[in-house]
Simulated scan of single mutants.
Amino acid sequence: MPVDDDLILDAAVDELRDYGLKRTSVDNVARRAGLSRATVYRRFESKNVLVQAALVRESARFFGEIVAAIGPLPTAEERLVEGFVVGLRKVRTDALLTRLLVSDPEELVPYLTLRGAGVIAAASEFLVSQYAEVGGTMTRDPHVLAEMLVRLAISFTLTPDGSIAVADDDAVRDFARGYLVPLMS
């Protein structure tokens, strides 16, 4: 019987949420999924690959929640502003990310930076698709702008304290209107 990757990824996310990156093991993920260790390793060659896959999938879910919030907005500019606000709010309240930032920041940071290509690519493609959906036109490459926005959001996530009050939706909204929207022209 074929193994559903979602079964393994669900178990991995649950392990990460309960125990953090350091204490999560492929053995524990396999046990939680009701599978053998070898079966998990056949699908994901290492713990690193498994964690990356889990984070990419969770990113896709995260973006689905953002789409639900910004879907009714008619313009790319409005979607950018509200998407940035909703995204930063969700980052601050997401149980998995909060757990990992508190318990294992030294383990999490590489998955968002040095080993973050998958998460950055998935998030960037999401932004480009949202822009295309509203038929936006810009003189700049939307892929480059999307990647810049994702990298900026990661920076705010990892270092929330600064001149911009990321816990204040109105402050984030003002920042996005004043600094991010002009990048679209």
Rank of each mutant, 00 (worst) to 15 (best):
V134M: 02
R43I: 07
A176Y: 11
V119L: 14
N48G: 05
L149A: 06
L145C: 14
L152G: 08
L114G: 00
A76N: 05
V134A: 07
D6W: 06
A53S: 09
R57G: 10
V181K: 06
S103N: 10
A95H: 05
H143T: 10
V26K: 02
E15C: 10
G162H: 14
R17D: 01
D18T: 15
G64R: 07
A11N: 04
I120H: 06
G178R: 02
L50K: 08
N28W: 13
A76T: 01
A69Y: 12
L101C: 04
R23N: 12
A33I: 03
A122C: 09
T159S: 02
D168I: 02
V102H: 07
D94N: 14
L100M: 11
D10A: 05
G87I: 12
L180P: 09
D14K: 12
R89H: 04
A132E: 15
E125V: 09
A38E: 09
T159C: 02
R177N: 14
V85R: 05
I66C: 03
M1L: 00
S46T: 08
E106F: 05
P142Y: 11
D161M: 02
V109P: 00
R99I: 00
E78A: 09
T113K: 03
R37E: 15
E147F: 06
P105L: 08
P182G: 06
M1W: 08
Q130I: 06
D6E: 14
E78H: 06
L100K: 14
L158D: 08
Y131L: 14
Y111A: 03
L145S: 12
D169E: 14
G118Q: 13
E82V: 09
G71Y: 05
R177H: 14
S129Q: 08
T39F: 00
V81C: 14
L127Y: 04
L149E: 08
D6P: 00
V181S: 11
V3C: 11
N48V: 03
V166D: 00
V40I: 10
F63V: 07
T137L: 08
V56I: 15
Y111R: 10
P74L: 13
I66M: 13
V81L: 10
A53C: 01
R140Q: 03
A12K: 01
R173S: 13
L101W: 03
A33W: 10
D104H: 04
G34L: 15
L101T: 01
V67L: 14
E77V: 08
L158M: 09
E45T: 11
N48H: 03
V150Y: 01
G178P: 03
A95F: 04
T39I: 12
P142H: 15
S36A: 12
Y41C: 01
P142R: 13
A69M: 07
R115S: 00
T113S: 12
L183C: 09
G83Y: 03
T139S: 13
A69G: 06
